[in-house]
Simulated assay, not measured.
Amino acid sequence: MILILSKPGDRDTDLVIEWLNFFKTPVLRINDEELMQGITSFSHDSNFIENS
């Protein structure tokens, strides 16, 4: 899983995500404004191991 932090409407990020989707790479995009305003939140468990 790839986490991308970006700004809303960032076309370069859109292109990177399109490329990752083409290769079926799991990706999560979080926009900085939504994160700072509390609209979006996330947590990470550093003990979690994903089987590939």
Score class of each variant (00 low, 15 high):
residue 13 T to D: 04
residue 16 V to M: 11
residue 21 N to W: 06
residue 5 L to D: 00
residue 37 Q to E: 15
residue 11 R to S: 12
residue 20 L to H: 10
residue 33 E to P: 03
residue 6 S to T: 10
residue 26 P to Y: 11
residue 39 I to T: 05
residue 26 P to E: 13
residue 44 H to P: 02
residue 10 D to H: 03
residue 49 I to P: 05
residue 33 E to N: 09
residue 5 L to I: 08
residue 42 F to H: 04
residue 31 N to A: 08
residue 11 R to Y: 10
residue 18 E to S: 05
residue 6 S to D: 06
residue 34 E to S: 09
residue 33 E to A: 11
residue 30 I to R: 00
residue 52 S to M: 13
residue 36 M to A: 13
residue 16 V to W: 03
residue 13 T to Y: 04
residue 48 F to Q: 15
residue 12 D to H: 14
residue 9 G to H: 03
residue 41 S to T: 05
residue 1 M to K: 09
residue 13 T to H: 04
residue 35 L to A: 10
residue 11 R to G: 03
residue 1 M to N: 13
residue 22 F to D: 13
residue 22 F to E: 13
residue 12 D to Q: 14
residue 5 L to F: 06
residue 40 T to S: 14
residue 30 I to G: 01
residue 18 E to C: 03
residue 8 P to W: 07
residue 17 I to M: 05
residue 29 R to N: 10
residue 31 N to R: 05
residue 3 L to F: 13
residue 20 L to C: 12
residue 25 T to P: 00
residue 6 S to W: 01
residue 29 R to A: 02
residue 17 I to G: 00
residue 24 K to L: 08
residue 51 N to V: 07
residue 19 W to K: 06
residue 7 K to A: 07
residue 5 L to E: 04
residue 28 L to M: 09
residue 26 P to N: 13
residue 43 S to M: 03
residue 8 P to N: 14
residue 38 G to K: 01
residue 9 G to Q: 03
residue 6 S to E: 01
residue 41 S to P: 00
residue 50 E to M: 14
residue 43 S to L: 00
residue 19 W to S: 08
residue 2 I to D: 12
residue 46 S to P: 02
residue 29 R to G: 02
residue 8 P to Y: 13
residue 50 E to N: 15
residue 8 P to R: 13
residue 29 R to E: 15
residue 2 I to M: 12
residue 24 K to E: 13
residue 16 V to S: 05
residue 7 K to L: 07
residue 34 E to L: 02
residue 25 T to V: 12
residue 21 N to M: 06
residue 31 N to F: 08
residue 32 D to V: 06
residue 51 N to M: 06
residue 45 D to W: 07
residue 37 Q to C: 07
residue 17 I to V: 15
residue 15 L to K: 14
residue 7 K to G: 06
residue 46 S to Y: 09
residue 12 D to P: 03
residue 16 V to K: 02
residue 36 M to L: 13
residue 40 T to W: 01
residue 38 G to T: 04
residue 23 F to T: 13
residue 16 V to A: 10
residue 45 D to S: 13
residue 19 W to R: 07
residue 25 T to R: 08
residue 16 V to C: 08
residue 26 P to C: 12
residue 1 M to I: 10
residue 6 S to Q: 01
residue 23 F to W: 15
residue 4 I to P: 00
residue 44 H to M: 14
residue 39 I to P: 00
residue 13 T to W: 02
residue 39 I to H: 03
residue 41 S to Y: 01
residue 4 I to N: 02
residue 27 V to T: 14
residue 45 D to R: 10
residue 52 S to K: 14
residue 32 D to R: 09
residue 8 P to M: 09
residue 10 D to F: 02
residue 9 G to T: 02
residue 48 F to C: 11
residue 7 K to S: 11
residue 10 D to N: 08
residue 18 E to I: 01
residue 37 Q to N: 15
residue 26 P to D: 15
residue 14 D to Q: 13
residue 4 I to R: 01
residue 36 M to S: 11
residue 35 L to C: 05
residue 40 T to Y: 05
residue 25 T to F: 09
residue 14 D to T: 09
residue 27 V to E: 06
